[in-house]
Each structure stands twice: as C-alpha cells, then as structure tokens.
C-alpha cells in the first residue's frame, strides 16, 4: 500500500542544551541555544519514509507552525528525505496552549488530502503530549497515540502501541492520525545529495492565525535543588549502612 503522509514537526532546543531564562522572564533565553527537530518527530519522519519506501510511492510532506526560524527545521527534514514542506508562519511564537496550536494545524490539514498524519508523541520543549490527539479530535479522525510501529493496509492503519503492562494492537480507519514514540528506528542522516536536492524541493510559507493562549506561563523557575546527597561509602562494605539509611532516615524500606 502506498499513500501520502504528513508529518508535523516542531523546532525545539537540543536535549543537551542548558536552558536558561532571563530574570523574571516567562520564556527561555534563546541565546546560545542549539535547535533541533524534536526527537519524537524524528521517529515519526523516519517511520513516514519507511512507509512510503515500502509502498514504492507516496509523498512525505512536513508541516510546522512557528516563526521564520522554523524554516531551518523544515530544511533538515527535506534534506533527510521529505518531499515537500509547509511553514505555517505565526507572528511571535507558539505557546504552551496545545489546543491553540492544534486548531491552527487542523485548519490547514482540513484543506489537504493526505490520509495519514503523523506526530511525535510529545514535543521536547513543553512536554505536553497533546497536540496529536487534539488535532485528530478536531478533524473527527481516529487516532492512536504512543505508537512504536504501524503498517498501512487497504483503508486502514494497524498500530502497535506501548501501554502499561504490554503492547496493544489497534486498527484505525483511514484517514487517521498516529503519534509516534520511540520505535526501532532512528532518523537517517542527510546525505550530501539529499542536502543538495533539498534546495529544489517545494517549501511553502503561509501566514497563519494562532488563537490566543488560554493557558499562560506565569513564571519559570529552576527545579528545586535536590538536597545534597552523600556517598555512603565504597564497595560492598557500605551496603549495611545504605540499608540502614534507607530504612531509618529515608523511611523507604
């Protein structure tokens, strides 16, 4: 089975980056921050490539909602193998209100024909884990979340989901939405040829309206420092003291 696929990707700070905010600010300081394609979105992209390759045809289109800087994220996806890209350009920045993001993405998706839309299970910045199922609900399409792998059949997509206590297999009627968690695949590296070819692929920029956020970040803080820990000792001799501390001091045994 071959079909056209959309992958929604987000530009987020590299997981290794130290994120800081300037005093009193509600947003992080982007100074010196390296940005990447959100890790789960990379899994979704690779899953899309494998599906279209196995089918022998079918196009992969990547969509992102963000500022002008998100063009860079789309170029990375094009270089890795996506066929086309769309930037839904917003003034200012996207917010933590995932429903606002979902409404804007859904409005674009409504105008398109692709029967399968892939998301990362959660974005590496806000960790909200919500945009995919929200978009599906707004479009009235079935959705499977936390999927590790899927297969497209005539009119359906069969997904393996990671759930508590095991693996669930669900079948969705197409058109459908799937959110990807880490499966067996890592995003391929962009080849030099891919990078060159990316320059000639269609990259569309559309101005988009983002509804006002109804969930607002009032303040950012660093997480509470964990109380200074201690090295109980070295080697096997330290074990009885560790067990005593766990029982009498930490009260966890």
């Amino acid at each position: 089975m071959s079909l056209d696929i959309i992958v929604c990707v987000k530009r987020v700070p590299d997981t290794e980056t130290r994120v800081r905010f300037s005093d009193g600010a509600r947003m992080i300081d982007s100074e010196g921050v390296k940005y990447i394609v959100s890790p789960y979105d990379e899994f979704a992209l690779e899953a899309a490539f494998r599906t279209t390759e196995a089918g022998g045809e079918g196009k992969v289109t990547v969509i992102t909602l963000g500022g002008e800087e998100s063009l860079e994220t789309l170029r990375v996806a094009l270089a890795a193998g996506a066929d086309a890209a769309v930037l839904l350009r917003v003034r200012g920045s996207v917010t933590m209100d995932g429903l606002a993001t979902a409404k804007t993405l859904a409005a674009e998706l409504k105008t398109r024909e692709e029967p399968l839309v892939l998301f990362g299970v959660k974005a590496g910045d806000d960790d909200q884990q919500q945009v995919g199922p929200m978009v599906a609900t707004l479009l009235g399409r079935p959705c499977a979340s936390s999927v590790t792998s899927f297969e497209v059949h005539e009119g359906t997509v069969r997904c393996e989901r990671e759930v508590e206590g095991g693996t669930e297999v669900v079948e969705l009627d197409l058109p459908a939405v799937v959110t990807l968690t880490k499966g067996a695949f890592e995003l391929r590296y962009a080849s030099l040829k891919g990078i060159m070819a990316a320059k000639r692929k269609p990259l569309e920029v559309k101005d988009a309206d983002l509804p006002e956020a109804r969930l607002t970040v009032e303040r950012l803080d660093y997480p509470p420092e964990r109380a200074e820990g201690r090295i109980v000792g070295e080697g096997v001799e330290a074990v009885p003291e560790l067990v005593r501390l766990l029982r009498d001091e930490a009260n966890v045994l």
Binding site: L99, T137, L138, E164
Partner: peptide, 23 residues
C-alpha cells in the same frame, strides 16, 4: 497522567474546547 489518561485528556480537552496542562 497515566498511559490511558495522557491519551484521553487531550481528546476530551478538544471536545469541550478547554486548554490542557499535562503531567
């Protein structure tokens, strides 16, 4: 915010048009 809750909450939020704060 279990596997089930994380799957359901965004759908319910979209159905009742309410913002969601996860986890």
């Amino acid at each position: 915010a279990t596997a089930v809750g994380k799957d359901l909450a965004p759908r319910v939020a979209a159905l009742v048009d309410a913002p969601l704060a996860s986890d």
